[in-house]
């Protein structure tokens, strides 16, 4: 068996730099969205602002943050991730069905 291997790719300098930028940006965005969510809740408590709005706002922020992390940190954005992406969306679908269905129906019957 030949030990030599050049079949895989080592990213070149330019790629490394741009990838580093993207990944760090994702980190900054995550931290920013987190601060925004905590801030919104603190604000809502102190100002007595609409709590319904605060809830939908932070849930939206969570969804955005998760999408960011999945696509960038978990590399869904990269080539060859079609199948993982497909399963990611299937999971989103079943998750939504489960959570929404169960939540509403247990409220109605409660």
């Amino acid at each position: 068996m030949s030990g030599e291997s050049s079949t895989f790719k080592r990213p070149d300098r330019r790629e490394i730099r741009s990838e580093l930028k993207v990944q760090t940006t994702a980190f900054a965005v995550s931290i920013f969205l987190t601060i925004l969510a905590f801030g919104a809740v603190v604000y809502a408590i102190e100002q007595g602002a609409s709590q319904g709005f605060a809830v939908s706002f932070i849930i939206a922020l969570a969804i955005v943050q998760v999408a960011f992390q999945a696509y960038i940190w978990m590399h869904l954005k990269d080539k060859g991730h079609g199948v993982p992406q497909l399963f990611f969306y299937m999971a989103v679908y079943v998750t939504a069905m489960t959570v929404i269905g169960l939540m509403f129906m247990s409220w109605w019957s409660a």
Binding site: V41, I45, Q51, I58, A62
Partner: peptide
């Protein structure tokens, strides 16, 4: 988000 933040509001 759902446990802690929503627990507050």
């Amino acid at each position: 988000t759902i446990v802690y933040l929503m627990g507050k509001v």
